[in-house]
Design a protein around this nucleic acid. Structure first.
Length: 155
DNA sequence: GCCAACGTTGGC
DNA sequence: GCCAACGTTGGC
């Protein structure tokens, strides 16, 4: 089983949006970066766990956890001209972009902010705290996962 | 709103 | 295949 960190802009889609969905389950769409596409294709599997991270907002940070409930299938939003992430180069017969489904696991009682993540030496290797990191999905180690769970409990 | 970092595009 | 130009991300 793998662990991940997934970014979303709360103004566009926050953890509360996910919480309001039927079965608290939704698809994770709009990935248009090849490194991340390859994570989806090769590594993200049913049963994996993921942090939900709010980016591009006043207090960026980890706001909760999710489970992957369906793995890699074509991102249909790439085929729809009216979609923000429409990509005319993605052929429905050979889809370039993939999505997957997530189910909400828990909303943290308090955000574990990026500023807080940066204060812990144990998390220094996380991609999200490193300068210039722009990947919207990044791997997390089991140790990092467990440590952040500990922080989220208010430690 | 600024700007650094990085990915992608396209001319050559 | 190189690399300049451009677009996007995302913290601050």
């Amino acid at each position: 089983m793998n662990y991940w960190l997934m970014k979303s802009e709360p103004d566009v889609y926050s953890i509360h949006h996910l919480a309001a969905e039927a079965d608290q389950t939704d698809y994770w769409d709009g990935i248009r970066n090849y490194q991340v596409r390859n994570f989806i294709r090769d590594d993200i599997r049913v049963g994996d766990r993921a942090f939900f991270y709010h980016s591009q907002c006043k207090v960026p940070g980890i706001v909760g956890t999710m489970r992957i409930v369906r793995e890699a299938y074509p991102d249909h939003t790439a085929f729809d001209e009216t979609e923000k992430y429409f990509d005319p180069k993605s052929d429905p017969d050979n889809p370039r972009w993939l999505m997957f489904d997530v189910q909400l696991d828990a909303i943290f009682p308090n955000i574990v902010s990026l500023a807080e993540l940066r204060q812990h030496e144990q998390l220094a290797e996380m991609r999200v705290v490193q300068k210039g990191n722009r990947l919207s999905i990044t791997p997390v180690t089991e140790e990092q996962w467990n440590y952040i769970q500990f922080l989220s409990a208010g430690n």
